[in-house]
Design a protein around this nucleic acid. Structure first.
Length: 671
DNA sequence: ATTAGGG
DNA sequence: CCCTAAT
């Protein structure tokens, strides 16, 4: 046969060099630093007292009292900045899921020219969002999307709702305030023009709505989500936002969704380095700015951006499993335990893509150093009867947290939204490149607990979709619960996004990963410090652990390892030798020692090679394959395809012969 | 466990 | 690369 003539008697065996394993110690460095600082305690106290007052009055009064309340607030704030009513309303409106597009928000921000900080945060907003996109799925159940718009009221140091009440009035019974009262206090009032709290916050921190959005990132303090009359969940605000989107954003803001779940989801660059540059007020411009500021170059993730719907779901669930306890917890314990700031510093040599033919000597010098900016504890699922006192609620939370911390936490590594469970893998093998993937790296604090903790059993079961009934509950529950009911909707709404490579909370970014070419690679900081400290935790399982792990495991996509020319050549040789359709043999023949190349991979590669050979060179991507090899691919493919039957027959014969020989050999050996 | 294909 | 159906 023609092919045979030029084929070596034996296929070229391709061997993959062994990748040295990096010392585990170098893989991560976690520094426990400081507890979040709460500089604005005073204002908080103020709010607390105000809240208490409002609470008392709310029963008998409604909007009519807002004016007086406002006056009170104003009286307390001497340095407040006068703001127009419209300013108050607009931000809220912007936040509203239904209309919540970043563009709108931006315009609002623009209007608030006085709020430098706001603007600053605004600019970073995309980052912030993306930073925790993995947590997207970690949503507080029962939180109405609508409420989300008002959640942002919290300021950097705001405590949980309960905390506020408590601060102001001690053990205030939640029951004392009926639902409508709460509504007035935390939702309706917030929306209202005269809402004292909003104004106060504005005075103190600028636009309250916006501040909340970023507060967590910037200050490392907690965010308070006063999202619902009934749900005082403390969770990642972003989570709420996302959730709301999922529920209501039928008319999706594609851009937003993409932002949340796709390429931005994992970026966490410079979140803590607030840039006070002025927002230009243009959403696009802001986004551009974001990209421009990106510290890291995102890895080109050819196949990672778009995942199948199913994949998304899986990932979503995974990410969801990564609940987050916002650092803004009212609990001191939480704050102390959870506020771990760190800086991620990446330095060292260059990582080569893990290509079998890549030189390895460089790897030895490639050290990755990083610090973790923050660690978050998994979300807790806590249902508290409405008759519970705030004090009891606080205690409950503390107990829950204590329980978790007490039982120990383990650190998980998330790369591109996927958990890297194989501890034996090196960073390199895991696809961790200091140059490319830092922003895709995240850590999780995973409770060792097997069961979710339902600290308090309430009369109302957790609701996947908030209903009036949920108003009676104070719950911080596992996003998983929510997602169960919303998974479909989510899938439909995010068909093109990659959570993982959004991950993750997403669940992460990937978790979904998601990189896309649009990512700015020109960032001067690309290889600089990478603040990628998206720490996530698996929420206490509300779902059987094994299930979660299973899912997580399934979602752990292998790192991409482009075939090198050497490998391609080996493959071509092998195929020329054994023919197509016998990938196991090809594997044994030329890639026996390349554990990362399965026969399926080889088959796939051959498929792509055939395709590559059939397209114009201009259309080809990646490392160029010598035309000579491509020609051989085509000829070999044609040959084997054409004579498949014949060859199969021959192969069958050969096998029989081999078998006989083997048998004889055994006989001989035996005798 | 492999193979074949679609995604 | 992933996922599956079919062997």
């Amino acid at each position: 046969m023609v092919l045979k003539k030029r084929l070596p008697s034996r296929p070229i065996s391709f061997e993959v060099p062994v990748v040295p394993r990096a010392p585990r110690s170098s893989r991560r460095r976690v520094q426990h630093n400081r507890i979040a600082d709460c500089k604005h305690l005073c204002p908080i106290e103020l709010l607390a007292s105000l809240a208490g007052k409002l609470l008392q009055e709310s029963e008998s009064s409604s909007a009519s009292n807002n004016a007086s309340d406002e006056n009170d607030v104003l009286a307390l704030c001497e340095n407040g900045i006068k703001e127009e009513r419209q300013d108050v309303d607009k931000p809220l409106k912007v936040e509203s899921p239904e209309q919540g597009s970043w563009e709108e928000s931006t315009s609002i921000a623009e209007r608030c020219s006085e709020c430098k900080e706001l603007k600053c945060k605004f600019e970073n907003y995309p980052q912030a969002e993306s930073d925790h996109s993995q947590e997207c799925t970690s949503v507080i159940s029962g939180a109405k999307p609508v409420v989300c718009s008002n959640i942002e009221l919290g300021d950097p140091c705001t405590r949980s709702f309960a905390g506020i009440l408590d601060d102001g009035k001690g053990d205030v019974s939640l029951e004392s305030a009926n639902r409508s009262s709460f509504k007035h206090l935390f939702r309706d009032r917030a929306v209202g023009t005269n809402d004292p709290e909003i104004k106060l916050r504005k005075r103190l921190y600028g636009d309250p709505v916006r501040l909340t959005s970023f507060s967590g990132h910037k200050t490392g303090t907690n965010l308070v989500n006063r999202d619902d009359d009934k749900n005082f969940s403390r969770s990642n605000k972003r989570s709420n936002r996302i959730k709301s989107f999922r529920y209501h954003q039928k008319i999706g803001d594609h851009r937003t969704r993409k932002l949340l779940s796709s390429k931005y989801w994992r970026a966490a660059p410079k979140l803590w380095d607030c840039d006070f540059s002025k927002a230009d007020g243009d959403a696009k411009a802001m986004f551009v700015g974001y990209k421009r500021k990106a510290l890291l170059k995102r890895e080109q993730h050819p196949g990672g951006l778009l995942y199948k719907k199913r994949k998304l779901l899986d990932r979503s669930s995974i990410i969801t499993s990564d609940g987050v306890i916002s650092r803004e917890s009212n609990s001191n314990l939480l704050q102390k335990s959870l506020h771990i700031d760190k800086d991620i510093l990446l330095e060292g040599g260059t990582f080569d893509s893990v290509s079998g033919s890549q030189p390895l000597h460089r790897l030895k010098d490639a050290n990755v150093k990083f610090s973790i900016k923050s660690l978050k504890i998994p979300e807790l699922f806590i249902d508290v009867p409405e008759t519970a006192t705030v004090g009891s609620l606080k205690r409950t939370v503390v107990e829950a947290v204590t329980a978790i911390l007490g039982s120990g936490l383990r650190v998980g590594v998330v790369l591109r939204g996927k958990k890297i469970r194989d501890d034996s893998r090196t960073l390199l093998q895991s696809g961790f490149s200091c140059e490319e993937n830092l922003e895709n790296l995240g850590f999780t604090l995973e409770p060792v607990l097997e069961k979710s903790q339902q600290l308090v059993v309430s009369e109302d079961p957790p609701l996947a979709v908030p209903t009036e009934a949920s108003h009676q509950l104070i719950s911080v529950q596992d996003a998983n619960v929510l997602n169960i009911g919303a998974s479909d909707a989510v899938a439909e709404q995010h068909p093109l996004t990659d959570p993982c490579d959004h991950v993750v909370d997403n669940p992460r970014e990937d978790i979904p990963s998601i990189t896309d070419n649009s990512v700015d690679n020109n960032s001067p900081d690309c290889t600089a410090i990478v603040p990628l400290a998206v720490v996530q935790m698996e929420p206490l399982a509300t779902v059987p652990p094994d299930q979660k792990n299973k899912r997580s495991e399934l979602c752990q996509r292998r790192i991409r390892r482009p075939f090198s020319v050497t490998e391609v050549e080996a493959l071509v040789h092998a195929v020329e030798e054994v023919g197509i359709g016998r990938w196991r043999d090809v594997k044994l023949c030329a890639f026996e020692n390349a554990d990362h190349r399965t026969y399926i991979d080889l088959k796939d590669k051959w498929k792509t090679l055939v395709h590559t050979a059939s397209i114009s060179p201009q259309q080809r991507r990646g490392e160029p394959v010598p035309q000579e090899l491509l020609d051989r691919v085509l000829s070999a493919h044609a040959c084997w395809t054409q004579h498949q039957g014949k060859h199969n027959a021959k192969q069958a014969v050969r096998k029989m012969v081999e078998a006989e020989v083997g048998a004889e050999g055994i006989k001989v050996g035996g005798s």
